[in-house]
Each structure stands twice: as C-alpha cells, then as structure tokens.
Amino acid sequence: MNIIEVEHLKYAYDKNSKPAVDDVSFTIPAGKYVTLIGHNGSGKSTLAKLLSGLITHYEGKISLFGQPIEKADNAAIYALRKKMGFVFQNPDNQFVGSTVRDDIAFGLENRQVPHEEMDGFIHTYAKKVGMEDYLDQSPENLSGGQKQRVAIAGVLAMHPELVLYDEATSMLDPVGKRDILDITFHLREENPNLTVLSITHDVEEAFRSDYVLVLNAGKLVLEGTPAEVFSHTEELKKIHLDAPFFLSLKAALKAKGMEIPDEIDTEEKLEEFLCR
C-alpha cells in the first residue's frame, strides 16, 4: 500500500506569489525511509504542512494510508492523524505539555495506554532520547538540542505508522543525531510498515535513506535511490545541494589520478580498496 500519495499538489501562500509547492506528484510505499532535500525556500516545510493538515486549501490530491483526504469526513481524518507523528522545524511549536513528562504522556494518551503503564512508558521514551533526568523540567527551559530530543520522544511514544521529521535533528550533537537515526531505523525492525519522511539538509542522512526526493523552487526535480540521485553531482550543485562525504572523496581521488572501479560504492568498500 502507498502510505502517501500526492498528485499535482500546488499551493501558494498568496494569490499573487509564486507557488511554494508547484505541481508536485510522488508516492511513498509503506515501510520506506524517504528523505526530502532541497534548497532553503524550496517548499519542503510547506509540503510537510500540507501533509499534516496545517494547510487545508490547495490544488491537487493527497491520499494518506490509501484514503483521499479531500473526501474523508472529520472522524476519518481524526483517525488518520492518530497514525501520524510530526516533528516540526522549530520545536517550540511542538510542545503541548507544561513539563517534559506531560509532553510525552500526551503522545501516550493519544494511543490510549492504560494509566498504570504510563510512567513506565514515559521513562522508556525519555531514556531513548537521553532526557530521563529532565522529566519535571518545562520544555521551554531546555537547550535547543534538548528541545529537539523531547519533541522526538513525544512523537515516537505515539507509535505512529507514519513519521514526518522536518529537520528534527538539526541541533543535535553528532552522537545524538546518530542515535536518533539509529532509533528510527531500529523502529522499522519492530514495525516493518513504519514509514518515515524526513526533511533534511544532512546529505549523509539522505545517503543512508531508501529513497530521496529533491525539490527545487517548489518543483520535484529528481527522485530515486540515493545512488541514483547523488550521481547527478553537477545538477545538485546548481540547486544548492552537495555530495555526501564518500562520493566527494571518491571524486577527489579520481581527480588526482586514482582508478577506482564502479563496484566500490560504499565507504566500507573504499576503505578496504585503499588498504589492499
């Protein structure tokens, strides 16, 4: 089943302005980790707002979990939203509770976890993101990266079937960032149907994902596996994007005259190749 299906989606903030999302179509099947990349102002967050229902008037079609949302009634939309977890670009817009504990509890209530099991779950999720010592703190009293950690815990606690990250790890320290990516990948082992759409400027994350969508000025200009997408080095440069470390290094070595066969297509293989 396709978890997200978008057809000729178009939206402009003002009648007179250029559309922020301009005739975009794509599908995301269940169980995929998809990254959405694109320059600043290319329309990524707008697309996220359209999918999350924050923007309701648009042209084109959106289907979630196989259901066209234009035709769904309020009850159906409510049921759909409960299966989706969003982490917004600015975590300040995310918090609903007055403490970290309440905030995570909100995600749990949403999936009707029995009261007596709440505390255990809250600890589990706080611990997953390394925030177990801050349960009684108010989210606004946290550092930038701590806010992002709590926002992520709140969403994971919901056990969503679709996770939408809008630059959810942009302010995490390197180990924290790696941990969150690992947790997200790991969750898919527990639930093979978990689908992730992650908006990111981190090309390394995109390189690790199953599938990459590339926006440029509101239009979807490239999509495919990371290997396919990042093989378009020059085109990507033109639209403000970069190559991941591995490809940059391979290109630099080639430019200096080293011959590297095509089958060397991961960092590990390159490492081994160089040490032969």
């Binding site: 694109g38 320059h39 600043n40 630059e167 302010m171 400027h201 440069k237 403000h240 994007l241 970069d242």
Partner: peptide
C-alpha cells in the same frame, strides 16, 4: 549554530 537549517550551499 548558524548553519543549522541552511542548505549546503548557504
């Protein structure tokens, strides 16, 4: 953290 949220070129 000036580069958080900036695209690679920016």
């Amino acid at each position: 953290e000036p580069t958080a949220g900036l695209d690679p070129a920016a």
